[in-house]
Nucleic acid binder design. Structure first.
Lengths: 337, 337
DNA sequence: AGTGCGTGGGGAAACGGTTTCCCTTGATGT
DNA sequence: ACATCAAGGGAAACCGTTTCCCCACGCACT
């Protein structure tokens, strides 16, 4: 005997027998099918109300071939960026009656494909958030989980809707801003090596170097945490650069704190930029010059792209690039005379 | 014809016919039933592998009466506290092969019951996070979604596992700390009126007042945002108190910023406490004295309580109280002579 | 009055699995 | 050689819903 009948819940059959009709008719009434006689419909509705009947979503999903659920695979839920995307996605999807199922890969790239596949089987579509897997693996995986939206990653051969933040563009603009302020010796405090968005920043900086050959740019190994930024302050202080581009706001705040502890003033002695424009970036001392990424819009748009695929079979799906918006604040200033 | 057969996926029948056995046998093999002949099992596994067959979770859920999914209902995903709980819950549940489905009520209390009911029907259990609904409504709802874990809320008549952070205790200790430093005029910068955790802080402060009748305590309307804290700085500066208890860290940081802009020094002129110990609390200038709430443990424990209910039918379930841990940092100091 | 047609609703199949029941088959013992 | 038994696999029921198919009924028209 499959299932458990001990906690027997009220099913469509109960409503049917109470209303004296077949369960097919109950189903028609519940789904607003108008070909049902008004009297019978009323009787069914009364019975459903009295029994507090609510259709079982699992049975419904099986029959309909849809679950009204989408999955999101994130590398790490503790990352504020992914939290913001999740929030935007969840709220947007909820507006259309869809729910979001979470799968956290804990940064383990080998888990991602499995999680994504499993999520796809449970859900009507999958949002893959900054996957760590290789390009080859991604290309192979993408078609198998068709209603798919990529975030901060693109595919070459397979056409997949994709939303990418143009980190390269953002860091170029920040660097150009420093140059404009007179800085000629810059340093980039890098993010995690395996991070795709770090690679994009590096590419942006290559373009920057090509454009400004007379500006010196060095690279200092950093990280994406407050402590990583904090601990880099010695290296930064002694590198001779006057303008520091930091991987993200969190690390920049750490660096800011480390520098202030060493008596190095920002922006008088050193100019500093972050990346992300997280909520507190405007409240640090001094407020952080940074590049704002419209992340909750990202989640929102991810849902819209998903919905397009679910509703219409039309997979016309270009990549959307999000150019960050530069926020000029107090952590950057003219180079010291 | 239910479902869509256009994108026909490989089912158990395909594996069965390829392996030359009945689908019942395939099911037995897939579920590790040992009563299957080794040769046949190997043949089935080979077929499944070649066809890349993975059991359909929806069909499986229908037959098994379980979905390996739990739902979480939160008032607002943009709140860092709920994000942390979600993260802890999601990671802990994933360890046991469970996924988490999100339902965001957007602070609309009337939506909560509906969302929770719907989530329960889709999932094997529900975590209700700081529900805004009335006590009466909660009592009525609780039994209908039996495997239930409450966070920051308790029930009276219905026994329900419940995890509550003892905000009252935390703020009492913070207040006592200020008294110890010599402060005799305190002020509490309140949180949102409708917030249950604000009410708990107020109750804690009542006890505090009873215990320290010679200490003056006044209440200043505040909020839970940085800007609310910032804009309260005038009221705080002119209230005459020397020790300020702020609803949470975010508002405390706003207040800190507003005070520093007015030239009021912390802790020399004014002592300040926050609440939550969010990641940046230790990095403000000065670092914030606050009460640490072990929120990701909360998510972790929520899953453990949930698992107890799902696995054993034993609903022995006391309320767990989490006393916050006081973090003494630089934002509090001896009262000015 | 008989036939044609439209409509509403019941029966049954389908969705994709799991599990029970029962029968077959092979082995063992006498 | 026959009876008994255990093991293993197939048929069918079941989970809860939607939808197709078809029948019965009523109405209008010839």
């Amino acid at each position: 005997m499959p299932g458990r009948r001990n906690t027997r819940r009220v099913g469509i059959a109960d409503v049917a027998s109470m209303a004296g009709v077949s369960h097919a008719t109950v189903s028609r009434v519940m789904n607003g099918n108008t070909t049902v006689d008004a009297d019978i419909a009323a009787r069914v509705r009364a019975a459903a109300l009295e029994l507090k009947y609510k259709p079982n979503p699992v049975g419904r999903s099986l029959a309909l071939g849809k679950t009204d659920t989408i999955g999101i695979v994130v590398p790490d839920l503790s990352n504020p960026t992914f939290q913001a995307i999740l929030r935007g996605l969840s709220i947007a999807a909820a507006r259309d009656g869809y729910r979001v199922l979470i799968a956290d890969s804990s940064e383990v790239s080998s888990e991602e494909a499995i999680l994504a596949g499993e999520a796809r089987r449970r859900c009507d579509g999958v949002v893959l958030c900054a996957p760590r897997m290789s390009d080859a693996e991604l290309e192979e995986l993408a078609p198998t989980l068709y209603p798919l939206v990529l975030i901060n990653r693109t595919t070459e051969s397979v056409p997949t809707p994709s939303l990418v933040v143009d980190y390269g563009q953002g860091i170029q603009e920040l660097a150009a801003h420093l140059v404009e302020l007179g800085h000629r010796k810059l340093a980039y405090l890098t993010g995690p090596d395996r991070s795709a968005s770090n690679v994009q920043r590096l590419r942006g900086l290559e373009k920057f170097t090509a454009e400004f050959p007379n500006v010196e740019l060095q690279f200092i190994p950093g990280g994406n945490t407050f402590d990583a930024g904090f601990e880099s302050s010695d290296a930064v202080a002694s590198c001779g650069a006057t303008g520091i581009l930091v991987f993200n706001d969190v690390a920049a705040m750490g660096l800011l704190s480390g520098l202030s502890q060493r008596g190095i003033r920002v922006p008088e002695d050193l100019s500093l930029t972050g990346f992300d424009d997280m909520p507190f970036a405007r409240y640090t001392m001094p407020p952080l010059t940074t590049a704002a990424v419209p992340i909750s819009d990202l989640g929102d748009l991810a849902w819209r792209r998903m919905r397009e695929q679910i509703q219409t079979k039309d997979a016309a799906s270009p990549t959307n690039y999000f150019p960050p918006r530069i926020e000029l604040r107090g952590s950057t200033g003219p180079v010291k005379a």
